[in-house]
Amino acid sequence: MVAIGTVGLGGPGALGGGALIGEIDEAGAPRPPAGRRWQRPPAWRLVILVIAFLFYAFPFAAAVKYSLVQSDGSFGFNNYSQIVSDGAVRDSLYTSLEISAIAAVAVVLLMLPTVVLVRLRLPRLTLLLEGVTILPLVVPPIVLASGLAHLQGSAPEWLVKLWFNHPLTGLTPTYVVLAMPFSYRAIDTGVRAIDLRTLVDASRSLGASWFMTLTRVILPNVETAVLGAIFLTVALCMGEVVLSSIMLYNNVLPVEMIQVGASSPGVSVAISILALVFVFVLLFSLSFLARRRRGSTSVRVI
């Protein structure tokens, strides 16, 4: 049962998130003109829809039911209230959220200006950048993990104190790097979809500084893409297990979930469900933002 919960956010979770973003994009695409007569879809489509729905809904419903079973066999919210009352779980949730927030901000601050700079001034570096950003996917995570663990073991004490002593400093930079394949592509696709040079020139000629051009002109027009990058980064931070457990950061949410799962599986599943709900809320707010400007050209996130 634990596995069901972690799949939503675990290592493969990042890829699952990718697929979900694709669906959002469809929602933002131009819809058929209103007033077109609604036609009953053929029966086989309904059948497929129902099967697919059951395929996803059944394990989820089972997990919800399981999380509601209390230790004495009755139904209740004990497992959920334990998340709040269990200090370790709460703290690990906060830590993971902090890591997510900082990593998401760092990804945007790093990637958006880089992509804009390369597109405008250094187009010859595009290939190099594409190569570099794909590296975290090409190099197996275990290599990265053992490399970091080795560094952790052999680094001078001041560096260990500065960098590795806390998961915030130890994991956030690593997650920013791990998120690069997704964040770069999401933002690059968004920037490609706008007439960057003309917008930048127009903004500059009207007296805007580079900062104003980035924040007032470029960012709002690649909003969906940037949100996509943020979402993927958050999903990665909330679900990554391999690195954090190898580097012995036990007080982050995914590792904590596994530990709790060993002693009280109900609580672990409850956390998974909450995490899933969190992701859905994130997704819906994303699609809401994407649809806010209706009729504007849809920007593919991935």
């Binding site: 007439d195 003309t198 020139d201 127009a202 500059r204 009207l206 709002p220 027009n221 504007s296 050209t297």
Partner: peptide, 18 residues
């Protein structure tokens, strides 16, 4: 460019979509 006080109209549509 942003300190030159020159208004420019471009060939491509350049209005800010947002």
């Amino acid at each position: 460019a942003n300190k030159r006080d020159m208004g420019m109209v471009f060939q491509a549509y350049s209005l800010f979509p947002n």
